[in-house]
Design a protein around this nucleic acid. Structure first.
Length: 301
RNA sequence: GGGAAGAUACCGAAGCGGUCAAACGGGGCAGACUGUAAAUCUGUUGGCUCAGCCUUCGUAGGUUCGAAUCCUGCUCUUCCCA
């Protein structure tokens, strides 16, 4: 029987966790999380990790498995994820991957070109350069070091330019030479399922979930990490807004409102990403039975 | 009961006779994306048979070649005096 990775994805708050657990339970297999924030052991409320009860139903991987102090990224997820999948596929014919981190899922499905980790000091100095001299100075530098990438990159996006420059400066080679633009082959089949529903309903779910997080003590959780706010792991919806509140920049109710808005925006962005993936099969969150049926029919063929 | 200010697109808010389908902000929607991705960035936001046309600036009239902008009545809101 061919090995199949079944991916359950979709926008934040749509109900991936519950669906994934039911599917994994049905298939008698385990779940690999593809969530760039639930992976951090220090974060719980703001990331909406599965509850202890849920975690007892099915064995989960990459939940609370790393530290916010780790310099985690999509490439590491690819490496560690594939290693784990290799191991799991020796026990199961199907494995369920659940999560909404688009790039992480993409890294597992298609791969990320190999290149070195960014040097934090170089990144820091490039960031400073943008602040003091503006993005134009980085553009000029990129034009010299990597004219190929310069012609295709979004020149208004500092993050893109900074990363390209990091690679150029660290390796002495143009960033574009690392970009192969090839899809890697995987030793398993991939079945992509995404959940979505009416936009108003989704927004309601998100708003409600944020209220529940706040009730559950999100403010306190965020407060615990206030001093670590500069960590990338904490540049996260739910925490950054509370940090602004702690700074006295915005009132508390405004922070909560912003968490809702930014969650809605994140959901939309996720949908934009998944929509362009023709391999995705779409379902409503309450169609778990249909999903199980669909998966059954697919893994038999 | 008397007086003052105001009613602008999904919301807030500019505009104060033509260059206004209407600045700006918010929200929404759409898109980009390969080591920060819950990140970072972009576009769009009255309708249509879309280089043009149609309907919009509380409402009904009026002035004017021409009004969101001026005048009058009405409705509503806020504030002040009784």
């Amino acid at each position: 029987m061919p090995k199949t990775l079944i991916i359950i994805t979709g926008p934040t708050g749509i109900g991936k966790t519950a669906t994934g657990i039911r599917l994994a339970n049905h298939l008698q297999t385990e779940i690999v999380s593809a969530d760039s924030r639930q992976i951090f052991k220090e974060l719980s409320i703001g990331t909406a990790v599965p509850t202890n009860e849920e975690l007892e139903l099915v064995k989960h991987h990459f939940i609370h498995s790393h530290s916010i102090h780790d310099n985690y990224n999509a490439s590491r997820f690819e490496t560690e994820g594939l290693r784990l999948l290799d191991c799991l596929f020796s026990k199961y014919n199907q494995v369920v991957m659940v999560g909404g981190s688009m790039l992480y899922i993409d890294a597992i499905c298609n791969g990320i070109d190999s290149m070195p980790d960014a040097d934090p000091e170089i990144r820091q100095s490039l960031k400073k350069q943008v602040e003091t001299n503006g993005i134009e100075s980085l553009r000029l530098q990129l034009k010299q070091l990597d004219p190929v990438y310069y012609n295709s990159v979004d020149l208004k996006n500092p993050a893109r330019i900074i990363h390209a420059l990091e690679m150029c400066l660290m390796t002495g080679k143009p960033y574009s030479t690392f970009r192969s633009n090839t899809k890697k082959e995987r030793p398993f089949r991939i079945l992509k399922i995404a959940l979505n529903c009416d936009r108003d309903k989704l927004h309601n779910r998100i708003n409600l979930r944020v209220d529940k997080m706040v009730e559950a003590g999100l403010e306190n959780e965020a407060h615990n990490f206030y001093s670590l706010r500069n960590l990338n792991a904490l540049n996260t919806v739910g925490y950054r807004e509370f940090f602004s509140y702690f700074d006295g920049e915005i009132p508390r109710n405004k922070a909560i409102e912003l968490i809702k808005r930014n969650s809605r925006r994140y959901a939309r962005k996720q949908l934009t990403w998944f929509r362009k993936d023709a391999e995705v099969h779409w379902f409503e969150p309450n169609q778990t039975n249909e999903i199980i049926e669909f998966v059954e029919s697919q893994i038999k063929s």
